[in-house]
Amino acid sequence: MSEAVMTSAWQPRSAWAGIARNGRHGRLQGEAGIRLSLRDEIGLATIIVADDQETKLRQILAEQLDWLLPSAGRTSIEGEKGLVWSAPGQWLAVAEFRRDLAALAETLRGVAAVTDQSDGRALVRVSGRQARAMLAKGVAVDLHPRAFRAGQAAITNIAHINAQIWQRDEAPIYDIAVARSFAGSFWSWLTHAAAEFGYEVERAPVH
């Protein structure tokens, strides 16, 4: 008698599944002014420091992970890995792949609470020569270079949706994370705002 092969009906599903379509959209003439990169593979985790443990947290992050603890409204990201300030005593850990954060909770045991957010949030990278102009239509913070530059972060509203935004470089390139349950509403606003500039949608490769 052969044994039945058991397979799970639960399969990983992108936060953007059924919402975003790869390719060129909006205005089709000329170069696209916006590029939207869907970051399904990225690792995200919240870090909430325990009472009176911030000095210890800073030490562990520096010695074991080579990470700096960013101050309010700042990031400390090198390449695709690092931290984004979220609130007093709270940060968002970011890594290129989810597996890169697998040991974080154990590393910070007794010093900070770590909660995986990789499946709880939807993240999109916004770039292109019209990125700032497009986001200014709905982002509730001033994105002018005098007010918001590379290495800065904010918790804000975008078209009445709670979001976390950080600027990666002076190009500018932005990463934006929203709750997974709001991915559809956020995408609707984002693509509507980007349409006049022409936009390209791509998915970062999953490894």
Rank of each mutant, 00 (worst) to 15 (best):
R13S: 09
E63T: 10
V139W: 00
K56R: 14
Y174L: 04
E106V: 07
V206S: 09
E54T: 12
A102C: 05
R99P: 00
R74K: 15
R58I: 00
P70T: 05
A45M: 08
T75W: 06
K81M: 13
V139E: 06
I158R: 02
T191A: 06
H192W: 05
A147D: 10
E96S: 08
N162L: 02
S76N: 10
Q117V: 02
A50V: 06
G184Y: 01
A136G: 15
W10N: 11
T7R: 13
L104P: 06
E200S: 06
E54Y: 05
R168Q: 13
D40L: 03
E202G: 08
K137D: 03
I173R: 12
V114H: 02
I60W: 00
G151N: 04
S185H: 15
A204K: 03
H192T: 11
S14Q: 09
D142R: 12
R24M: 01
R13D: 01
R125C: 12
R129P: 12
P205T: 08
S118F: 01
A112N: 10
V201L: 07
S86G: 05
G18R: 03
A45R: 01
S8L: 15
R13M: 04
A112T: 09
A147W: 10
R109C: 11
P172R: 03
K137L: 10
T75M: 06
I173H: 12
I77K: 06
A32G: 08
W16A: 06
R129W: 09
N162D: 08
V201K: 03
G73N: 09
T115N: 08
R146N: 14
A17T: 06
L190K: 04
G82Y: 05
L68I: 04
D51Q: 07
T55E: 13
R203N: 13
L92G: 07
A131W: 07
Q53G: 00
L135R: 02
A102I: 12
S71Q: 12
H25S: 04
R39V: 08
R109G: 07
E41L: 09
M1D: 08
R168I: 15
S71L: 07
T7Q: 11
A45T: 04
N22K: 08
I158Y: 07
E54C: 01
L108A: 10
A32Y: 01
I60P: 06
R98E: 13
A50L: 14
K81G: 00
R109T: 13
G151K: 02
I158V: 15
L101T: 00
P172W: 10
A177Y: 00
R203Y: 12
I19M: 11
R146T: 10
A147G: 00
N157W: 09
V5I: 15
L36E: 07
L83A: 09
V49F: 10
A163G: 13
I155T: 14
I19P: 10
F97R: 15
A159Q: 13
S118A: 14
L108M: 09
Q90D: 02
E3V: 13
H25G: 01
F186D: 04
N162V: 01
D119L: 01
L69Q: 09
V84H: 01
P205A: 12
V114S: 04
P12S: 02
T156L: 15
A194H: 07
P205C: 03
G151S: 04
A15I: 00
D51Y: 00
G89F: 12
G151Q: 02
A193V: 05
A140T: 09
V201W: 02
V49S: 08
S14V: 03
A159P: 05
T55M: 10
R24W: 00
R58L: 00
E78S: 14
